[in-house]
Design a protein around this nucleic acid. Structure first.
Length: 368
DNA sequence: AACGCAGGCAACCGCGTCGAA
DNA sequence: TTTCGACGCGGTTGCCTGCGT
C-alpha cells in the first residue's frame, strides 16, 4: 500500500532532539500518556511527527530504559535469542528489560557481529563460516572427473576458499588417491556406512587435537573421502564428517537432501538417508535452559519454523538434548562472566557459546 | 595542533501488518 | 470485501566522537 513519509510535510522538524523538545515530550506523556502518536506532537507543542516522537520516547526518554554497557548476561542472551529469532530485535528486546530494539540492534551490529566474524562464525546463521572451510573448491575437475557433482553450486556456497587450506587438503587428497588401495578403501567406506562415526561435540577451542588423535582421525577420515573421490561412485563424496561441514553452512540444502534423493550427473540416484542413515545435523547447541528461559512455547514454534524455512537449521537437538551443552553457561555463567573483563575475554567466552561439530581433522584455528 | 579515518549511536525511511470505516 | 490510516519493525543513514598519524 505504502504511505507518504509523515515528516516531509508541514515543515516538521527532523534530526537531533533538543533538551527543550525532550522535556516537552516527557511532560506531555507523564501527564496524558502518549495516546495517539499522530496527535501527540500537536498537543504537546512539538514540531515533530508522531513517529519521531514515538521513536524518541521508546528509544531514549522512556523512564525504564537502562543505559550503559551491556552486561555479559545480556550479551549472552542476545546471542542466544538471535540464533533462534534472527533479526527480530523487538522480540529480543522484549526479553531484555530496559533495553530497546534499536539499542540491541546497534549493539549487535557494532560489537557482537564483529566479534562473531572474528571468531569465524557467520553472524547470520551462527554457523562456522565455510568460506574458510570450503571443501567443494578442491573437489574440482582436476581431482575428479566432470561427471561428478558441482556441490558448491548445489549448496549455494561461493567458492571463497582459503588458499592455504586448499593446498593442504589438495595434498592430502591427491596423496590418498595415488597411494591407497581402492578396494580396501571401498570396504572401509562401506564399514563406515554400516557403522557411522558418532557425532561428537567439539568446541572451537578443540580445533587442535593432540597429534596422535589427529593422525588417527586422518586415517579414519581420509580414506572415506578419497574412496569416494577417486572412484566414480554415485555415493556422495563427503564422508560423514565432511557432510557435517557442508551442512553447517547449507542448511537450506539439507532439507532437500533429507527428503529427496541426490541426483548425480550420471543420472543415478542415491538416497543419502538409505546409504548413510540419518544425516548428522548441525546445531549450534546453545544451552537449552538458557534458551528456554527466554522463550515461550509459541516462540519456540515460531522461531524454529522460521529457522527451518529460511536457514534450514534443525534446533530440535537443542531442545531435546540437555546433555549436549557442555558450555560453561550451564554451570555458572555469572562466575565465569564476572571474571571476564576485556574484549578478548568476551571473545573467549563467546566462543564457548558456539559448539560446532567440526571434525578434528581440520585445524582451522590458524585460518581464523 | 591539525587532519583523516573508523566506530558508535541516534534518528530516519520505507514497508508490512492490523484494525476500523 | 476493500480501502485507508496508524503503528511497529528492521534496515539504513548521517552525525558525533575518539583515536591514530
Amino acid at each position: 500500500m505504502g504511505r507518504a513519509p509523515c515528516c516531509d510535510k508541514n515543515g516538521l522538524k527532523k534530526g537531533p532532539w533538543t533538551p527543550e523538545e525532550d522535556q516537552k515530550l516527557i511532560d506531555y506523556i507523564q501527564k496524558h500518556g502518549h495516546g495517539s502518536w499522530r496527535t501527540l506532537p500537536k498537543n504537546a507543542g512539538l514540531a515533530r511527527c508522531g513517529k519521531s516522537c514515538r521513536l524518541r520516547w521508546t528509544n531514549y526518554l522512556r523512564p525504564d530504559i537502562k543505559r550503559g554497557r551491556f552486561s555479559f548476561e545480556e550479551e549472552e542472551t542476545i546471542i542466544q535469542l538471535h540464533s533462534i529469532l534472527g533479526n527480530k530485535w523487538s522480540a529480543i528486546a522484549a526479553r531484555l528489560p530496559g533495553r530497546t530494539d534499536n539499542e540491541i540492534k546497534n549493539y549487535w551490529n557494532t560489537h557482537i557481529r564483529k566479534r562473531l566474524l572474528r571468531m569465524g562464525i557467520d553472524p547470520v546463521t551462527h554457523s562456522p563460516r565455510l568460506d574458510l572451510l570450503d571443501f567443494s573448491s578442491f573437489l574440482a575437475p582436476s581431482l575428479y572427473n566432470q561427471t561428478q557433482l558441482d556441490v558448491s553450486r548445489l549448496l549455494g556456497i561461493e567458492p571463497l576458499v582459503n588458499t592455504e587450506l586448499l593446498r593442504i587438503a589438495t595434498n592430502l587428497l591427491t596423496s590418498q588417491c595415488q597411494n591407497s588401495n581402492m578396494v580396501n578403501q571401498r570396504l572401509q567406506h562401506q564399514s563406515l556406512i554400516s557403522n557411522p562415526p558418532q557425532v561428537q561435540d567439539h568446541t572451537l577451542t578443540a580445533f587442535q587435537p593432540p597429534q596422535q588423535q589427529q593422525q588417527q582421525q586422518l586415517q579414519n577420515s581420509i580414506p572415506d573421502i578419497s574412496a569416494t573421490i577417486c572412484t566414480t561412485s554415485n555415493a556422495p563424496f563427503f564422508g560423514d564428517q565432511q557432510s557435517q561441514l557442508v551442512q553447517a553452512n547449507a542448511g537450506h540444502f539439507q532439507a532437500d537432501v533429507q527428503t529427496n534423493t541426490w541426483q548425480t550427473s550420471s543420472h543415478a540416484q542415491c538416497d543419502i538417508q538409505d546409504n548413510y542413515g540419518p544425516l548428522p545435523t548441525f546445531n549450534s547447541q546453545y544451552p537449552q535452559q538458557l534458551i528456554s528461559q527466554h522463550l515461550s512455547t509459541d516462540d519456540y514454534n515460531q522461531a524454529f519454523q522460521i529457522q527451518n524455512n529460511n536457514h534450514g537449521f534443525d534446533f530440535s537437538p537443542v531442545l531435546s538434548t540437555t546433555t549436549s551443552s557442555p558450555t560453561q553457561l550451564n554451570s555458572s555463567p555469572s562466575t565465569y562472566i564476572n571474571s571476564c573483563s576485556t574484549e578478548d575475554d568476551r571473545d573467549s567466552y563467546s566462543s564457548n557459546l558456539f559448539n560446532f561439530q567440526i571434525p578434528d581433522l581440520l585445524d582451522v584455528s590458524e585460518f581464523l
